[in-house]
Computed example of a mutant assay.
Amino acid sequence: MTQLSLHSPVGELTISEEDGVIVSVDWGWSPFQEENELLLRAKKMLDDYFDGEEVEFDLPLKPHGTEFQKNVWKIMSEIPYGQILTYGEISDRLNSHARAVGLACGANPIPIIIPCHRVMGKNGKLTGFSGGEGISTKRYLLELEDTFNNLDDNLSLPF
């Protein structure tokens, strides 16, 4: 596994690559740094994202997880920049339950690139986030994307 770390507004992040695909983005700094073309490309995309650019992460990804989790992550990957889905909307697509979707979101090994921060609770409720500082990190990412300005005015956000 090859890793490359970067500084970001939400803390230090480490991108991990295995066999030519991204397998994780973790909070923290890895002591094992090694540059390669894919990791440098992913780092540049993340840097651009944090600089406020609308980035489409077109990277080869292979998150480790169950088939259900991978189905949830695939749907999350399709959520456009500045948009959201609710846990319920994803669960409806998978004929599942919102709670199971929430658990899959929390297990996402490639946050930000697979945008689990773009998944919210019913009626736009800002719910948990497993990375960084939790909900405050999720709020930061959504504000970075100016997502709240795109939400239906009828949604009642808890902040």
Rank of each mutant, 00 (worst) to 15 (best):
M1V: 12
L4M: 08
L4V: 01
S5A: 11
L6Y: 03
V10K: 03
E12R: 11
I15W: 04
E17V: 04
E17F: 02
E17D: 09
D19Q: 09
G20R: 01
V21T: 13
I22C: 02
V23E: 04
V25I: 13
V25Y: 01
D26L: 07
D26I: 08
D26V: 06
W27T: 15
W29A: 11
S30F: 02
E37S: 12
E37I: 06
L39G: 05
L39P: 05
L39C: 01
L40I: 09
L40C: 10
A42G: 05
A42N: 03
K43T: 05
K43Q: 14
K44H: 06
M45H: 05
M45Q: 14
D47M: 01
D48T: 04
D51L: 08
D51K: 14
D51I: 00
E54I: 11
E54D: 12
E56Q: 14
F57D: 15
F57P: 14
F57Y: 13
K62Y: 09
P63I: 01
H64I: 14
H64D: 13
G65E: 03
T66E: 09
E67C: 00
E67G: 07
E67N: 09
F68H: 12
K70E: 10
K70W: 00
N71I: 00
W73E: 04
I75A: 09
M76F: 01
S77D: 12
I79T: 08
Y87A: 13
G88A: 10
G88N: 15
D92N: 11
D92Y: 00
R93W: 00
R93E: 12
L94S: 02
H97K: 15
A98P: 04
R99Y: 03
G102R: 12
L103A: 06
A104V: 11
A104E: 08
C105R: 15
G106N: 15
N108H: 08
I112A: 08
I113L: 06
I114N: 07
R118H: 06
V119S: 08
K122G: 02
K122H: 10
K122A: 08
K122N: 09
N123D: 15
G124S: 12
G124M: 14
L126Q: 08
T127E: 11
G128A: 10
F129D: 03
S130W: 03
G131D: 07
E133T: 07
G134S: 05
G134M: 02
I135Y: 02
S136W: 04
T137D: 11
T137E: 08
L141C: 09
L141V: 05
E145A: 03
D146L: 03
F148E: 07
F148H: 14
L151H: 03
D152P: 12
N154K: 14
L155M: 15
L155H: 06
S156D: 15
S156M: 10
L157Y: 03
F159H: 05
F159P: 02
